[in-house]
Simulated scan of single mutants.
Amino acid sequence: MKPIHLLLIISVAFTVFSGCVSDRGEPGVYDNQTETLSYQGEQLTPIAQQRNNAIKGTQYIERESYRLQVDGLVENPRDFTYEEITGLPQTSKVVDLNCVEGWGFTAKWTGVRIADLFEEVGAMENATTAIFYSADGYSTSLDMDYLLENDIIIAYKLNDVTLPPERGFPLQLVAEGKYGYKWVKWIVRIELSDSPYRGYWEERGYNNIADVGGPAFEKRG
């Protein structure tokens, strides 16, 4: 086989298995959906150029069997199907994700407001903390006031395409203004509590407030 033919085969294989058309600033195609790279005058980072961290690698979740469990201090604990979540009122935002490691990207996120989800289950007035659990065992928490006052959303689309598995399908928290370790992916459960909670990285010394521009680590002792 000639070297040029081998190079062509490798190139095609990379395109097929990566699920996108290009990583050079062009829109990718994911499950026959072409991503958007501009929204309301803002340039968006192509998914192929978005860096990604995970404690156990990409999680693969079946849409048909997926359930989002919402419980704790709620009047009506409930398991939502993917279709029930995507059937709630939809909203979109352009939000920067900033990693504590110093990198970041800008994307359009589409999903459901946390406030609408909590209204569905009847969040109790004494709930002060929302704890988010991931399919890979990861967890983190955020104050209820922050989630509601900032109209925080849980996204099921990224740059107008369904979240690819590596980006958190079926759901990723869009924790705007917070460092990336608060942007939990592959969400399977949300628990409302009246007590503070320290998640995976917070137990390892990261700041539980996680404001972008603030300290990455908490002072101990």
Rank of each mutant, 00 (worst) to 15 (best):
F132A: 02
I152H: 13
I190N: 07
L173N: 09
L148Y: 07
I152D: 10
G104Y: 02
L158A: 05
S141G: 13
M144G: 06
G111Q: 07
E191N: 10
I187Q: 10
R189A: 11
C99H: 06
A130P: 00
Y146I: 08
P165H: 11
K182I: 08
W103I: 09
A130C: 01
A127P: 12
A135D: 06
G168L: 01
M124K: 15
I187G: 12
L97Q: 05
N159S: 06
Q172E: 08
T140P: 12
L97G: 01
G102H: 01
D151Y: 10
T128P: 06
N159C: 05
T162G: 07
Y181C: 12
A107Q: 09
V112H: 05
L163E: 10
Y156G: 01
I152K: 14
T110D: 09
D151S: 14
R167Q: 14
R167C: 10
L117P: 03
S141T: 09
D136M: 12
I154Y: 01
T128Q: 05
G122E: 02
K185N: 00
V112W: 02
T129A: 05
V174K: 03
R167G: 00
C99P: 07
G177S: 10
W109M: 05
P170W: 05
L158G: 02
G137Q: 04
W183E: 09
D136E: 14
P170V: 11
G137N: 04
I190P: 00
L192P: 03
A115C: 02
N98P: 00
A107E: 11
A175M: 03
I114P: 00
S193A: 14
Q172M: 14
T140I: 10
E119R: 15
W103K: 06
W186S: 11
Y138G: 01
K178W: 03
E120Q: 15
W103V: 08
V121Y: 07
G137I: 05
V121Q: 03
N98I: 15
F118C: 12
T106N: 15
G111N: 06
D136K: 13
T128D: 02
F118M: 15
E119P: 00
V121D: 04
T129Q: 11
C99Y: 11
Y138L: 00
R113T: 04
T106K: 14
L148M: 13
A155Q: 07
V112D: 01
L117F: 02
E176A: 15
F105V: 08
G122M: 04
D151K: 13
C99N: 10
F105D: 08
A135S: 09
Y133R: 06
W109S: 03
D136Y: 12
V112I: 14
K157C: 07
K178C: 00
